[in-house]
Design a protein around this nucleic acid. Sequence first.
DNA 1: TATTGTTATACTCTATAACTATA
DNA 2: TATAGTTATAGAGTATAACAATA
Lengths: 151, 151
Amino acid sequence: MSVQDEAVVPRLAEAAIADDVGLLLAKLHAAGSVLNNKALAEFGLRERSYSVLRLACSGLEPTQRELAEFLSLDPSQIVALVDELEGRGLVYREQGRTDRRQKIVLATPEGERLHAGASAAIAACEHEQLAALTDAEAATLRKLLRKALWA
Amino acid sequence: MSVQDEAVVPRLAEAAIADDVGLLLAKLHAAGSVLNNKALAEFGLRERSYSVLRLACSGLEPTQRELAEFLSLDPSQIVALVDELEGRGLVYREQGRTDRRQKIVLATPEGERLHAGASAAIAACEHEQLAALTDAEAATLRKLLRKALWA
DNA sequence: TATTGTTATACTCTATAACTATA
DNA sequence: TATAGTTATAGAGTATAACAATA
């Protein structure tokens, strides 16, 4: 059973608000979060912690400040997320190379392994969520979202 | 000062996660919510209450159940939102035409007036948020979001 | 028996300010 | 003085279950 099998255009989709980008983003984001969190549950992760783990696995050696900015979260929320992942042995903190105030978040081998499984599950969710779009349309959507965010 | 003046592509945008639709939706949605709620403050509204008011003004005579489904909110949350708007004299409840359990949410003349101003403000926010996109691109984005949601 | 609206409650997420250590 | 991380707390948003009225 995939998503669009249940997708029925509701009566209210005729309303002007159904063209508001804010509402469209909210609805698609909310629907995706439900799928993602459901899929991540078997890995003991949620969207937030998954995002932090994923960036820790990126090879970009993100500082907590960068994680906060990039994930649109408050620095204090990053602390809690990293604490949790660190407590499970999935990531660890390292002192910044040039600034000793900074803490770089890196993945342990176990974190890498968990991420491999989780990212495959998330890719499947994404495919399911965008099942109504062709591959080209999905690529266009990604491109436009990126452009709107980062010009 | 418009949005993309501040938009600098962050270093982490090179990471694989920067192409995850989930993250892109979350970031754009979060940024839009900040703009929208800031703009709605002068009307004493927030995104949620604005959405309910907007649908009450749509002429579609939505029931609370329809509002809940369409806005991806729990029916109990709609109760609180309608209570608040009703208390301010912006909307009122009417018994369902065929089913006396249902309550239709309609706007008062004052609700219509407030909505006229608020919706103009929201349109401006949307324009600002999508400033990096051409009109054609913004239209494509809307179309793809709608298609992903409602096939 | 199922559904609409309602109430209540607990949980997650978000926003804010203050503190420490470094710069 | 400014910034990175941390702690604490309050507010907003979300999820769930139970109930009365109606179907």
